[in-house]
Design a protein around this nucleic acid. Structure first.
Lengths: 146, 146
DNA sequence: ATTTATGCAAAACTTTTGCATGGGA
DNA sequence: TCCCATGCAAAAGTTTTGCATAAAT
């Protein structure tokens, strides 16, 4: 994990210290490509550095959310959120409602809509999350066992 | 709340019973226009009909989520989800990251993208959630008190 | 009549807090 | 050196379960 990471830049720019807890959580998030529950972050951090406390992990996840680095989203059927990395302020995926697998995609073509909303609502928009729900090919084929 | 509600149709069609717990939760969701936390649903249901148990409210929220009637989303800074009504399978809003106010909007122009994703990924898409994050006009004007 | 769904109350988790101490800048 | 951020451990919430009973169909 190099200190050139744009996320580390965000932290520094906002005046936050680069602590072990924060760097470790960031490392875990990047290693998982950003689809991970708090419980899993907790477990991974514990494994990498048992000296880091539970509370710091939660405080870090909250900070990263505030900074727009990650975004909690509901994916698994449990009530605990899954955090997705907001690369460049946005994130897009398709979730299979059967098997919970997800497919990320990049181009969303929302520039026009973003501009319209900024003009209409007067909100300075900094990012977005776009989720599609559906049933993937595998679940449609294999999933006839009702 | 008439039994003509499309949400009630969904329940019936899927073979679920129209119980007091379900109808009351649905009533609360509709009255709040669908931006409401579990704690608030709990409180409102309790107020309307104290005989309805906590567990049934959670079971109902989970069922409605499965049926695509609502979708939990993380808006408040607390980790508890806010449920949004998925009218017709989709929902769009802009959230102010400062004051947490939200602005809903209808047209998202995602038909083309939906079609492309179905073709490319082989996923049968049934709905979507589109969230924008930003700072609203009020918070930009009044929010200089840092 | 048949089940499905419920209420209850306890158990199981998850997240948050307060405070003395340590580690970045 | 200074003060932000941490670890700890307990408290505070929130969600889930198991099971006998009620109530939809």
């Amino acid at each position: 994990m190099s200190e050139q990471s744009p996320y580390i830049q965000s932290l520094k720019r906002a005046g936050y210290r680069l602590t072990q807890a924060r760097l470790t959580v960031l490392h875990v998030l990047e290693a998982e490509h950003g689809h991970i529950t708090s419980a899993d972050v907790l477990a991974q951090v514990e494994r990498i550095n048992p000296a880091i406390g539970r509370a710091s992990v939660f405080r870090t996840l909250e900070l990263f959310t505030q900074l727009g680095i990650i975004r909690p989203t509901y994916i698994s059927s449990s009530m605990t959120p899954t955090y997705v990395l907001m690369r460049g302020g946005h994130h897009h995926h398709v979730i299979c409602t059967e098997c919970k697998r997800f497919f990320e995609f990049d181009d969303c073509d929302l520039e026009t809509l973003t501009g319209n909303l900024q003009a209409t609502l007067g909100v300075q928009i900094s990012g977005h999350l776009l989720e599609f729900y559906g049933v993937c090919a595998d679940c449609r084929v294999g999933g006839q066992q009702s």
